Simulated assay, not measured.
Amino acid sequence: MPYGCILYNAGYDVVPCGTVNHFNEVVGHRLPDMFILDILLPDGNGLDNCRQLRKNEQTAGVPVLIMSAHQAKQDVEAKVC
Score class of each variant (00 low, 15 high):
P2V: 15
N9T: 12
A10F: 10
G11R: 08
V14A: 05
P16W: 07
P16G: 07
C17W: 03
T19P: 03
V20R: 06
F23E: 03
F23C: 09
F23R: 06
E25Q: 14
V27S: 12
V27K: 08
G28F: 04
G28K: 08
H29A: 14
R30S: 15
L31M: 13
P32N: 08
D33A: 08
D33E: 15
M34I: 14
M34Y: 02
F35S: 10
F35K: 09
F35A: 01
D38K: 01
L41E: 00
L41P: 08
L41F: 04
P42C: 11
N45T: 02
G46C: 07
C50A: 12
C50G: 03
R51L: 01
Q52K: 02
L53D: 04
L53T: 00
L53N: 05
R54V: 05
R54F: 02
R54L: 03
K55L: 10
K55T: 13
E57H: 04
T59W: 04
A60S: 09
G61R: 13
P63F: 00
V64R: 01
V64E: 01
L65T: 00
L65A: 00
A69C: 05
Q71R: 13
K73T: 07
Q74G: 07
D75M: 11
E77N: 11
K79I: 15
K79R: 12
V80S: 06
